[in-house]
């Protein structure tokens, strides 16, 4: 394979491995620790799950800017429902799972609203979801009066993010078997499920068809609106899961910072991963690498004591490089 097509296909993986290699050489005391690699996953699995859903949506020619705000709203509502339930003396875990259900209900509903605006309302996806970006954030802040929505759970909610599976042979830095949180498995499961959906199901095929040429899809008797609605609902579901993870990590929801800029991070990961922003072509594993790459840059800069204010510059450059490397040779 020639260099150009090779980079187009594997460039993002190569970039990730090169950067990882560099980090291991430059900061072996940090990057050779299994904890650090595990944290790369656990710290980024919220935005990662959203990015996975976003990949499917972008493949279908859509986009969702409201994910970060919807995540805050869904998380907030979830905690409130859980608190109410705890006040009613429900068993701790039952209350927690009721809250989880509420979060997912809210976020899927939010996704469906976006989908309806785009399909029935015929509003361009960018604009339709821009409304959500502003409205959901503001609604959350109004509910929380600008501050945070604190959980009344005593450890139950936190256990969702904290509990995990200890790996028998790999030792963490505390000399105990390395604990891999369940949320990491949830993230990986989302990657596998989305890959499967995209490549092995009729729905996935239709997503691609709608994104590649919507008009031709209409003529090919594809129910375009149903497909789009499905894609937005999937993003909603992913946002719901991410909101639970976010709430569980902090045992509260900050109405202003929970999920802030997640829409951009998720879209960045998708684009870095090689999915075409104009739709019709995409891959979920690329998004996974994109998420890890962005996460690693943050870790790298923090451990190298680079000011946090430089992160944006580095990420911006990486995104541009990724797009340049993967830009296809135009068919003559």
């Amino acid at each position: 394979m020639k260099f150009g097509p090779f980079m187009q296909k594997w460039g993002v993986l190569a970039a990730f491995l090169v950067l990882l290699g560099l980090n291991i050489v430059m900061q072996p005391q940090v990057f050779l620790k299994p904890d650090v690699l595990r944290n790369l996953f656990s710290q980024n699995c919220g935005v990662g799950i959203i990015a996975v859903g976003m990949t499917l949506l972008i493949v279908s020619g859509g986009i969702d800017l409201s994910v970060g705000s919807l995540m805050a709203l869904a998380g907030g509502v979830g905690i409130m429902v859980m608190n109410k339930s705890l006040e009613g003396h429900a068993p701790e875990m039952m209350a927690v799972w009721t809250g989880v259900g509420a979060s997912i209900l809210v976020s899927v509903a939010g996704g469906l609203v976006n989908g309806l605006l785009v399909t029935v309302g015929r509003i361009a996806p960018f604009v339709a979801t821009l409304g959500g970006l502003l409205a959901y954030r503001s609604l959350t802040q109004a509910i929380a009066d600008g501050s945070e929505i604190a959980s009344k759970s005593t450890g139950g909610l936190e256990s969702l993010a904290g509990a995990g599976l200890p790996l028998p042979f790999i030792m963490g830095s505390n000399h105990k078997p390395l604990m891999v949180q369940w949320i990491i498995f949830v993230f990986l499961l989302a990657v596998v499920a989305a890959t499967f959906l995209l490549e092995r199901t009729p729905f996935g095929r239709r997503l691609v068809a709608v994104g590649a040429n919507e008009k031709a899809a209409v003529y090919a008797a594809v129910s375009v609106n149903a497909v789009k609605l499905g894609a937005y609902a999937i993003v909603g579901l992913c946002v719901g899961i991410a909101s639970v993870i976010g709430a569980a990590k902090l045992n509260s929801i900050s109405s202003s910072s929970m999920g802030a800029f997640y829409e951009l991070d998720a879209i960045a990961a998708v684009v870095i991963g090689g999915t075409s922003l104009s739709g019709g072509r995409g891959r979920v594993w690329g998004t996974l690498i994109g998420v890890l790459l962005l996460g690693m840059i943050s870790t790298m800069l923090v451990t190298a004591n680079v000011s946090i204010y430089w992160q944006g510059v580095v990420k911006g450059v990486i995104i541009l490089l990724a797009v340049l490397i993967q830009r296809g040779q135009k068919a003559a």
Partner: peptide, 9 residues
């Protein structure tokens, strides 16, 4: 090209 086929697939 426009309606009958998905050229990029």
């Amino acid at each position: 090209k426009l309606l009958g086929l998905h050229l990029t697939r």
